[in-house]
Amino acid sequence: MADRARPGSTAADRTVPGLTGVTAPAPLSRDEVDVAIVALGAAHDRISAAMYALDNHPGLAAVRVPGRTGRTERYAADLAAQIDALWSRFTALGTLLDQVRTLRAQRSRPGDEELAKLTWLLRAPMVPVGANGMVLDDAPPGAVRLPLMELARQLETGSADAIDRLSILDEAGSALVVRFGPPGEALARLRAAVDALGPDGAPTAACLL
């Protein structure tokens, strides 16, 4: 939706507080604010369900297994960083959505000042993120900042992608178990074979069975 400047306002007096050179979006109407809040709340609910599924995914345990090497280690490390960034962004989204809802609930018919604040929260690029995808607590000048709806959009696609990647990792681990057996059982068989060797390294009868 194109910006609609207030009568008598200019781009200079609609800058985002604390963000040099960033113009604040034109104020939304009360109905537009309510529609945006409903849409953002629905997105948050979908993301919440996806994050719950991610947190309970069987492949999550394999992400931080120590001792990996090569491509598997790089894949798992990259996926772990992606998941950490998703949680960081999800926390920020929930916090800001609560702020929006609290502000909107103060008056049934918000005035111009409340609408301007709500518009700023809903539309301004106010969530700073780093190169690693994490939300920044102390953002440097020039940091990338996302509006709430863009943050929600990226969270939806990112959580779905992370779940897919966890499934790939889980399927790869399951294939190894099918091929070689559970690691604990394989280690037990190895120890039994070592114990079956005689004191001089000669196999005993048990080792030959």
Results as ranks from 00 to 15, higher is better:
M1I: 08
A2F: 04
R4F: 04
R4W: 01
A5T: 15
S9C: 06
S9L: 06
D13H: 00
R14S: 09
V16C: 08
P17V: 03
T20V: 05
T20L: 06
G21Y: 01
G21C: 03
A26M: 00
R46L: 11
S48E: 13
A49P: 01
A49I: 05
A50L: 15
M51P: 03
H57V: 03
H57G: 12
P58K: 07
G59P: 03
A62Y: 02
R64Y: 00
G67S: 04
G67R: 07
T69I: 14
G70T: 06
R71A: 15
E73G: 04
A77S: 15
A77V: 11
L79N: 06
A81S: 11
A81Y: 07
I83T: 10
D84E: 15
D84Q: 15
L86T: 09
S88C: 04
S88H: 01
F90R: 05
L93D: 07
D98M: 01
R101Y: 01
R101C: 07
R101P: 02
L103Q: 12
Q106A: 11
S108L: 01
P110M: 00
P110V: 11
L115W: 01
A116S: 09
L121M: 14
L122P: 01
P125Q: 08
V135L: 09
V135C: 09
V135D: 05
P140K: 06
G142A: 04
A143L: 07
R145N: 08
L148R: 08
L148F: 02
L148G: 01
A152E: 00
R153M: 11
L155S: 04
L155D: 08
L155P: 05
D161I: 07
A162W: 00
R165V: 08
L166T: 09
I168A: 11
S174D: 14
V177E: 12
A186N: 11
A188R: 15
R189D: 14
A193C: 03
V194A: 09
D195E: 15
A196F: 01
A196M: 02
A196D: 07
L197W: 03
G201H: 02
G201I: 02
G201T: 10
P203M: 05
T204I: 05
C207K: 11
L208P: 00
